[in-house]
Amino acid sequence: MWRDWVPFWHPGVSPHGEEVDLLFAGLLLASALVLGLLFFLLALFCVRYRASNTIDRGHRVRKSWHWEVGWTAASFVGFLGLFVWGAGIYFQIYQTPSDELSVFVVARQWMWKVQHNGGQSEINALHIPVDRPIRVVMASQDVIHSFFIPALRLKHDVVPGRYQDIEITAHVPGHYHLFCAEYCGTEHSGMTGEIVVMEAADYAAWLAQQMPSSPLAQEGGALFRELGCSGCHGHGSKVRAPPLEGLYGRPVPLADGSFVTADEKYIRDSILLPRSQIVASYEPVMPSFEGKVSEDQLLRLVVYIKSLGGHSS
């Protein structure tokens, strides 16, 4: 393949990785053409019109506007093409992830903590099966970090205060770098890890081999009772609160007449900022859990609520 011919170049191993590589090649080619032309002209003029050279310098170009319009238009059209090309792939990279297989990543100074749905957790490593789209739901506990896998040509900042989800797929089994790309303090350059892409069977074996404490949803359920959420949201409670069964993925009618889809972000916001989006025909009585639950606990709650069933999308 063409990408293997380029020395020092490690081809991207994700579906859009190949397209980004092609875009890079296109950009390089366009630049090489422009630079080649420019350096050729500079060299030519410098040699031909050096002061010591007696050469005809008459008939200079006086009227310049058609030249100006010419190269302005040429650059504009060229740039427009590159813009459209790059934007198209960008939308592909950040398309809304499917919800087949999720992992949760909590970033904090200076480590990546990964939680699998089955309760397996790992630090500074992420094991994924090959060729399957994985949805990575990320949160930061302190400052801005950035989840960067060069081999997948993928990067996204993890901003505290909100969930960020992206989709990753890897075609080739192997070990790849995971970097934090946004400067985050003292051990920023130590906040690295590896992405381990495994064959499906190996992955299943690996999952089984891990020591899961207990599935995330189960731990979330325990928290749900511990924090008193079940007092209102549970069956037969006196306070009237919206039921959570079958909530996930469904459109929720809000008091202001609009609808919002109940995804992780919505559930997270409802726990932390309960009064920002009031469900229609309910009283805004829920207290905020801002500062009372950690990101780790929060994601367990979210997974638990998710596990209560809902629209499988």
Partner: peptide, 9 residues
């Protein structure tokens, strides 16, 4: 770098 998809990388 202005080119969206490459900038991501």
């Amino acid at each position: 770098l202005a080119c969206l998809a490459f900038d991501v990388h």
